[in-house]
Design a binder for these strands. Structure first.
Lengths: 113, 113
DNA sequence: AGAGCATATACTCTAAAAGGAATATTCCAT
DNA sequence: ATGGAATATTCCTTTTAGAGTATATGCTCT
């Protein structure tokens, strides 16, 4: 049950939801998330770290970038709610804008192809 | 998106999860929830009120009982996660114990048949 | 080794959340 | 109208979460 609570805590913050929405499209490094969200670097870094500590996402170091991504197989409860997030993405303006900015971002340098 | 966050906030507390688990079996008044959870009355009342304020549950006054229940059609995100809670109920000892105590409780007086 | 970019951490502050104890309210029965 | 049961609310305290600013660390390249 604590695992459930942990998942829900991760999901009840606006910034973290925006991050998860982005990561569903693929891995991203901190600076890209930061650019897309338009939020200060420490804020983004801390929330990414929060999600990682609670095992919602993984990270890999690549040169001086840290690439964050969703795990291959997220825990079931997270996976279920990521699907729900995708439904929301069609209605929620901020999500759509984030995805639009993501498309306009070249992630190949840091994150590989 | 604020609605999503609101749902997740409701779900990230142990007491509230236990309450929702119980209410999936049917309506209950405060004193029964209190007995089953073994928690102090103000705590239970406050959490029920919290869930109601956030529109996760409804209440009806019956004599000097207040009966709380899940709505006929919970909002989709809640409904999805209530299903997940049911999966958890089979593994989680505290949920099983709550359900057992629920069975041993006569709710007919306050909550109707 | 030194510069510069990317990221992480520390510190401080504010606000929100949760619990406990006491009290208030509501409704029914007598 | 009074008492008692059920529920709600208030007050107080403690904890937790999030934001902002500043600073530190890590890595790469020259």
């Amino acid at each position: 049950m604590e695992e459930y609570i942990s998942v829900y805590k991760c999901l009840c913050d606006r910034t973290r939801l925006r991050i998860l929405n982005l990561l569903q499209q693929g891995p991203l490094c901190v600076c890209h998330v930061q650019q897309i969200l338009g939020e200060p670097q420490p804020k983004v870094s801390k929330q990414l770290n929060y999600l990682k500590r609670h095992e919602m996402i993984e990270s890999v170091r690549n040169a001086n970038w840290t690439i964050y991504r969703l795990p291959e197989e997220p825990q079931p409860l997270l996976e279920e709610n990521l699907k729900c997030l995708q439904d929301l993405a069609f209605q929620e303006a901020i999500f759509l804008e984030d995805l639009k900015r993501l498309e306009q971002t070249d992630t190949s340098a840091a994150c590989g192809s």
